[in-house]
Design a binder for these strands. Structure first.
Lengths: 335, 335
DNA sequence: TTGTACGCGTTATCAT
DNA sequence: ATGATAACGCGTACAA
């Protein structure tokens, strides 16, 4: 049960430095490396995090900032999945985290973070403009954004390509022969709201289809989906692409109440592929985005950023997947 | 902008050790202390966490274990509030945390925690028996439990006195002249389910009231409240004490559907005082427990435990508060 | 009461 | 490729 590099070195008949090198990827003769690795393995050595941090000038703790109202934060599976991904990845690398959940004002949170000796932060920010993000970036604090894009190219972020995914979904609807395809967007001051709308618009224009009057702005809730759909149904849409699954659920309800059928009269598509989407009647066609993966990836990206700061900003776009179900392709549903 | 003890020492014309002493509460001459403190203040010094941890043999990171299914974990405001409290308190003390949210099996989680060089853990465990808790305690790992009581006196925990609170609420109903008071409990293998039931039973027996056939076991959901209440209404209850607010909401629904009125025919009380409780019709009488405070207190307790391990296990019972609203005392509601 | 000196376990910079 | 050795910043016996 060797506890220190020193002891390992003795067991492997090498110096501390060599052991440290094999641990951190220095250049070591293959034979020596193998010997050290076997000792490493047999002793179940775990490096002392505090010592490592001290020597390398880090704190070993990164911040996780989700500055949201408690209701939003914990009612939306999006954040919960993000949490799992981030927490899991960090725990895996034995790095601690500090949570900043909006218990205070953004200014207060920002100044605390900057003083907190954190190595870096993972920040969720769904709004196009966010003072906390601005402040963080302005101070050159190592940060990885989730669900946030910026015009400039200085920020590191992890996201999905909302525009491309929305375009793909809209194209799917078009390929089914639908022509009056409405869109219920999220708030246009959010990244997802704006970008998914842009994707819809792009696909529609490319196909030469009308877009005028076919957009309603919602707020990601079932209620807003219901209201928006009620209005759009009156405008004779034959398909609805909704900004998220919850909105789509509300829209399907409205369509049903209007005496129309899904998908026969109006096809409906969502975004997220939350668990309930597959259990709707009919099951919802939607875009699957691996939220937990986004969290995990963001943590990894931050750790890389810290390991190699010279590498410049990292921009990671995770893939999405079209999940085609009966809400667009029919399939003998009785409803 | 002094960064190290050394620099501070120079500024204050004392030695490193003296500065360290005023920081950690050693004995220092008042005059000297004042001088050091003023330097401390003016420089905005922040100790290097890594160095401190290394010197004192800690890791500076504590675990937060909420081994629950994602649905439960993030749909229940209980956990979200706990999170805020714990995270806030830890961030305040500049200590990091590592999240263990049940991404793996309990065995895997346990073994990882034990190898993770964590200083201690805060664990939520609502079940009377939990293998993760057992394993943690068996290995003498510094731990503070939340919402978990144990027969033995070796564990540290933070909780509210469910029995006393349930007794108080039941007594409130009794004082209103109600005599056939039913109880819809949580699952009896949970601490809250068992203890709140015990409190109800205690109050009823003390008052010499009947309890036979007046209990139904629910599972904290609205649906179970509805079902249980439907059954109990048939048994002629004139009051219902429910294990939590959600159950109470379901119960009120059932009572209304049965053509009875709240509170005129049947008084209803809940437990938790979640946000929606006050907005029910009629507003719900319930027991307020400061969940966020429990989280904050648990974090503090753990830090104390780590600072002074000789102090033995800490047991903290936080106060609860009876919140009397119209669901028990009437008050001119038209419904 | 105060200061000196050593140790904590790594990483990083030198020689070799 | 490998091995000494010097930091890293703090706590703390021990000495004064």
């Amino acid at each position: 049960m060797a506890r220190t590099l020193e002891e390992l070195a003795e067991l492997a008949q090498v110096s501390r430095s060599t052991v440290s090198r094999v641990l951190n990827g220095g250049s070591v003769k293959a034979e020596t490396r193998a010997r050290v690795l076997s000792v490493l393995e047999s002793t179940g050595y775990r490096p002392n995090v505090a010592a490592r941090n001290l020597a390398s000038g880090r704190s070993g703790v990164v911040g996780v900032v989700m500055h949201e109202a408690p209701g939003v934060l914990f009612h939306d599976p999006y954040f919960s999945l993000l949490f799992r991904g981030i927490g899991d990845a960090l725990a895996d690398q034995a790095v601690g985290m500090m949570l900043w959940l909006g218990n205070r004002t953004k200014e207060e949170t920002l100044s605390r973070i900057l003083r907190s000796h954190l190595d870096g932060v993972v920040v969720t920010a769904n709004n196009l403009s966010d003072s906390l993000v601005d402040g963080l970036l302005a101070s050159n604090f190592p940060a990885v954004l989730i669900g946030h894009r910026r015009a400039d190219r200085t920020a590191s972020y992890v996201d999905v390509d909302h525009v491309a995914a929305a375009d793909a979904m809209t194209s799917h609807l078009i390929s089914l022969g639908r022509a009056r395809i409405g869109h219920i967007s999220g708030p246009r001051w959010t990244v997802a709201g704006e970008d998914r709308h842009a994707g819809w618009l792009r696909a529609m224009r490319r196909a030469g289809l009308p877009t005028q009057g076919l957009t309603e702005e919602g707020d990601y809730t079932e209620a807003s989906g219901y209201a928006a759909a009620s209005s759009l149904v009156g405008k004779g849409v034959d398909a609805l692409f909704c900004a998220n699954d919850r909105t789509a659920a509300g829209a399907m309800e409205a369509i049903r109440h209007a005496g129309r059928r899904v998908p026969d009269d109006i096809a409906v598509a969502g975004f997220d592929d939350l668990e309930f989407a597959a259990r709707l009647d009919p099951p919802l066609t939607t875009v699957r985005q691996g939220v937990e993966d986004q969290g995990r990836e963001a943590a990894h990206t931050l750790l890389q950023l810290l390991t190699d700061p010279a590498g410049g900003p990292r921009r990671v776009l995770l893939p999405t997947e079209l999940v085609i179900r009966q809400s667009t392709v029919g399939g003998g549903s009785a409803s």
